[in-house]
């Protein structure tokens, strides 16, 4: 299995993602600079990592969303390829229109850097199938702009369609519906503010449950 990991100027979790995927989750990793336009069709997963791409200029993720490599990411996602955005990667996916909603400044003004308890809202699809709905995970967050915003009516629609995958037990940023991670209608694009690549060995290994879900999904898809 092959994972493409994108680096934008200001990405700082790309090494962590590479480490988790290649050393722990069993992927072959392939790094890509944002100015390239690779053909991701031989990849099983593309990751937009955390960080502060373009120094968060204009809005978090706004500049990265119009980087050349995003055309490759959109083409890959359009063919059903798995795309994961972590933290800044989540912001980029929203800015690029690959996920609904937007991430605004935390309601409490502080940069929030802590372990948080997440509740699995849905275990349908590629990202959480190794988990059960209602199960909790402990995974760290580290962000100043993680308040998920979308009209209330959309929250209900997304919930009913299983597009809300993770919620916070104690909302750290004012996100509507306590939302921590959402996927698109096709479920192949997933964005979350918490860092599963950082919950793989030290205080918590719960991030591995998400990586194992992805591996499980890809292996099943390959066999079918």
């Amino acid at each position: 299995m092959k994972a493409g990991i994108v680096t934008f100027p200001g990405s700082n979790c790309d090494d962590d993602a590479y480490y988790a995927l290649t050393h722990l989750a069993g992927f072959q990793g392939e790094r890509h600079w944002h100015k390239s336009t690779p053909d991701f069709s031989d990849c099983d997963l593309v990751i937009l990592p955390g960080g502060f791409s373009y120094g968060d200029y204009l809005r978090c993720g706004a500049m990265a969303a119009v980087s050349p490599i995003m055309e490759s990411v959109k083409a890959f996602a359009g063919k059903g390829g798995l795309v994961l955005g972590i933290c800044n990667g989540f912001q980029i996916l929203c800015e690029a229109g690959l996920l609904p909603g937007a991430l605004a400044r935390n309601s409490g003004l502080t940069f929030s850097c802590q372990d948080v308890v997440l509740k699995v809202e849905s275990n349908q699809g590629p990202w959480t199938n190794e988990l059960t709905a209602g199960q909790t995970l402990t995974i760290p967050i580290a962000h100043g702009d993680g308040r998920y915003v979308i009209p209330e009516a959309e929250v209900e629609r997304m919930r009913s369609r299983g597009e809300i995958l993770l919620t916070y037990q104690n909302n750290p940023n004012g996100s509507v519906g306590d939302i921590a991670g959402v996927c698109n209608a096709q479920k192949n694009v997933f964005g979350l503010m918490p860092h599963p690549e950082r919950a793989t060995d030290l205080r918590s290994r719960d991030g591995m449950k998400i990586w194992r879900s992805v591996v499980n999904f890809l292996e099943k898809r390959r066999r079918s």
Binding site: L58, R59, A62, C94, G101, A102, A104, V149, I150
Partner: peptide, 8 residues
């Protein structure tokens, strides 16, 4: 296209 995010 870029300067404003109409969601927020």
């Amino acid at each position: 296209t870029l300067l404003v995010n109409p969601v927020i």
